[in-house]
Design a protein around this nucleic acid. Structure first.
Lengths: 198, 198
DNA sequence: TTTAATTTTGAATAATGAATCAATAAAAAA
DNA sequence: TTTTTTATTGATTCATTATTCAAAATTAAA
């Protein structure tokens, strides 16, 4: 009997990220994804049930990876809440530095999926958020983070800020350096707008 | 000769906001928009060149309105930077309180339009952002806002946070009150995460 | 080799829905 | 009232593209 040759599944995912980033999910054609992946159109449907499942799979892989990184971080006892917060920012930025296309797909498509999901969105997203919230709660408990913070609201505040900034960078890379954005997020998040307010 | 009866153009816009919010722009059908607006499918194409122009018109109206409100605010000499900042937050939240559907359409579609625009996105968006940046710069100049802030980055930070929070509220209205989110944004923006850091 | 099992293919299909346009309706002017 | 002009209609067209599936290709086992 015949064996599956190469990593067609992986090739399709990579091609899909590229094409979805270029055109947006809705304007992306499966035929084009297949072409870039160097497989036949039909092969996409051997590996994935339909177009949306390809997108969901992309998100699953991304959030799974980021969740695993965050899990390692959270467990470290010797690291302070401030250092952990910076490291959390780094986990996300490192992922997007690795692939701006992923950043674009996330910014443009994740929200729509979360809002109109018929399918379950990846569990790793929820798990990631949960760990992030724990991390900040730890800082509050230790008395170094502001206790006036509503964590349920704060997590969206932070995520939203990320999304817009990463998008800004991804479509405008000559103007913004990813590193300056990374540093700015760390700064704003900690110190806020107000000078000498506390 | 015949006169245009009623406000078909307005009816179509209103219906489109509703339908785009429910299904997302890409899954929304012009036939359905026409049905909700109580006009024939063809009438949509009398008032708008194509589907995308309907969406662009929605954004134009929203940002025009918010820009005009912000303009009035910025001109007030007697109001402090802090009060102005709170008022800026209120302008956006008031718009979304007025119509959660608008919030959803903005959160889901604006980014994609900005990223992949062939058409020019509404000028009022840029103008709004510009005024917002001036407002914060004023606070820095007067010595009450943190001068370490990179405004070009901060504007996206703030907008992004808005987007995610408003979206969270719009799809999850039993859990989050719009007012608590409004207050939280004002709080986080001013004080940040860090306790006694400054 | 031959057969069998499985993968890969891509042209054909089928569904979708944006956009059109010829026909009709309504109001104003003659 | 009749004519003219403009607005409205919605069934139809037509391009697009996700998905299918029968045939071809490939490899392993017999």
């Amino acid at each position: 009997m015949r064996h599956k040759e190469g990593n067609k599944r992986e090739d399709i995912i990579k091609a899909a990220i590229k094409i979805f980033a270029e055109n947006g999910y809705h304007h992306a054609k499966i035929a084009k994804v297949a072409e870039v992946a160097n497989v036949a159109t039909g092969s996409v449907y051997v590996y994935f049930e339909n177009k949306e499942k390809v997108l969901l799979e992309i998100f699953d892989e991304i959030w799974k990876d980021m969740y695993n990184n965050l899990k390692l971080l959270v467990e470290k006892k010797e690291v302070s809440p401030f250092e952990k917060f910076d490291a959390l920012v780094d986990i996300i930025f490192d992922k997007f530095t690795e692939s701006p296309e992923i950043a674009l797909v996330m910014v443009n498509e994740q929200n729509h999926l979360l809002t109109h999901k018929k399918e379950k969105f990846t569990e790793y997203y929820d798990k990631f958020i949960e760990l992030g919230v724990n991390l900040i709660q730890e800082g509050i408990d230790k008395g170094v983070f502001n206790s006036g913070i509503d964590l349920n609201i704060y997590k969206h505040y932070l995520l939203g800020a990320f999304r817009d900034l990463v998008n800004t960078w991804a479509i405008n890379r000559e103007t913004f350096s990813l590193n300056s954005i990374r540093q700015s997020i760390k700064y704003f998040s900690k110190y806020g707008l107000c000078k000498n307010c506390m």
